[in-house]
């Protein structure tokens, strides 16, 4: 099952411990995480459900391409990392 980790800096605002969540795409995996941790959703996604401008998501070390629909595939043993972009200051 894919494993999901979050940037340390988000923990000050909303606890996001490492977790495992099923799904074949980034959208499916993250929505499962957010179903269990609803407050975290708005910290990562904007009002339209896209990745916030200054956030980045990696799958097995590669930045995802589809920041709007999060359709990038996640292998069953994939590592999804939700990080901050340095563009956000």
């Amino acid at each position: 099952m894919p494993r999901v980790t979050f940037t340390q800096n988000i923990q000050r605002h909303v606890p996001c411990p490492p977790t495992e969540a099923d799904g074949g795409t980034v959208r499916e995996v993250l929505e499962r995480v957010f179903a269990a941790n609803p407050r975290a959703r708005d910290y990562v996604l904007d009002d339209q459900g896209a990745v916030r401008r200054h956030m980045v998501v990696f799958v097995n070390g590669r930045q995802i391409r589809d920041r709007t629909h999060l359709s990038d595939a996640v292998p069953s043993n994939g590592e999804v990392c939700v990080m901050q972009a340095l563009s956000g200051g």
Binding site: N9, I10, H13, D42, Y43, V44, D46, R52, H54, M55, Q84, A85, G88, G89
Partner: peptide
């Protein structure tokens, strides 16, 4: 307004 995490 969190630079990365949006408005709260």
């Amino acid at each position: 307004g969190h630079g990365h995490f949006g408005v709260k």
